[in-house]
């Protein structure tokens, strides 16, 4: 069974990290990141052509995480593959011993490094979650039985701070209904909104892992505000980093506070280090999450 699942079901506060596969075949930097984040994480998300930019596949990179003794969360976007390829890769993931899958829509190709690419979106994230649920029940999306089934712990993304909230929560509940057992959130800055989202998802029987973003420099803040879909850093948070003598240290202190705050509300934290991987173990230690 998925370690992430058993930890969540046991009521443990989980930590998920994020691993970006390389553009190329040199795995050394990715392995270093896994070595740093693996020991302090319950599971590691392995992104799938993140930001619609070309990288080594999540499938192959997730297996590297397994081989190094850690547990990956295989990410699947709906952007790059049709329903045949998505199901085929899910079967491949099961045979590669990948137990968690995070299903997301995927950024539009026109914002990525291959803007001429055709966005596939044959299925959307809700529909793909249904497919994963069906595979867990032993059949493909046409109903044909699988020779050897799957037992994925499926998750989805949600954004507790995006308005309109009624639509946002309605959408998350549909994903839960379709089989999302855990939700990883976009970066949280308003913890009252995290509490509201967590309550709603707990009522639907799903877990919530709160996103914490390491805003290591004013440049990173500018990049996020300009480039990352649907994410805005609040002014008070941004100025705390901008006005600091040591922005990196200020970002680390902020993250420690956010992990502590999330601990009282959600079922875990999803740390997005944005290159500051080395700081993650310290953040988790000082927040009292790991020994």
């Amino acid at each position: 069974m998925s370690r992430l699942r058993s930890a969540l079901e046991a009521g443990e506060f989980v930590v998920t990290g994020e691993i970006a596969p390389p553009l190329g075949t040199d795995l050394s930097a990715m392995r270093r990141a896994i070595e740093i984040l693996g020991p302090v994480s319950t599971a590691l998300n392995v992104t799938d052509n993140q930001g619609a930019t070309l990288h080594l596949s999540s499938l192959a990179a997730s297996r590297v995480v397994v081989d190094m003794g850690f547990e990956p969360i295989f990410q699947q976007t709906c952007r790059d593959r049709n329903r045949l390829a998505l199901q085929s890769d899910l079967l491949a993931a099961a045979t590669l011993d990948l137990k968690n899958v995070l299903v997301v829509t995927g950024d539009d190709p026109r914002g990525g490094d291959h803007p001429q690419a055709k966005g596939v979106f044959d299925l959307d994230s809700t529909q793909l979650l249904e497919v994963v649920s069906g595979m867990n029940d032993g059949h493909d999306m046409t109903g044909r039985p699988l020779k050897g089934g799957c037992d994925f712990f499926a998750g989805a993304a949600m954004f507790p701070e995006a308005e309109p909230w009624d639509i946002q929560i309605g959408r998350a509940l549909e994903k839960a209904q379709a089989g999302a057992r855990f939700f990883q959130t976009q970066a949280i800055f308003d913890f009252d909104k995290l509490a509201r989202a967590t309550q709603a998802m707990h009522d639907a029987g799903s877990y919530v892992i709160a996103g914490v973003l390491l805003l290591r420099s004013p440049k990173v803040i500018d990049f996020i505000n300009a480039k990352l879909a649907g994410l805005m850093i609040p002014d008070d948070i941004a100025s705390r980093i901008r006005d600091a003598d040591d922005p990196t240290e200020a970002a680390i202190q902020l993250a420690i506070e956010q992990v502590r705050a999330a601990r009282g509300i959600a079922d875990g934290v999803h740390v997005m280090p944005l290159g500051l991987d080395d700081a993650v173990p310290r953040i988790l230690r000082e927040a009292g999450v790991v020994a």
């Binding site: 952007r79 997301v104 829509t105 950024d107 539009d108 026109r110 966005g119 979106f121 959307d124 994230s125 809700t126 529909q127 993304a157 949600m158 954004f159 995006a162 308005e163 309109p164 639509i167 946002q168 959408r171 549909e174 976009q186 879909a229 649907g230 994410l231 805005m232």
Partner: peptide, 16 residues
């Protein structure tokens, strides 16, 4: 919908 999604919004929707 630029992505042609049947079910949405996607994660990029912000303030509607």
């Amino acid at each position: 919908c630029p992505k042609g999604l049947l079910n949405g919004p996607c994660g990029g929707m912000w303030m509607g």
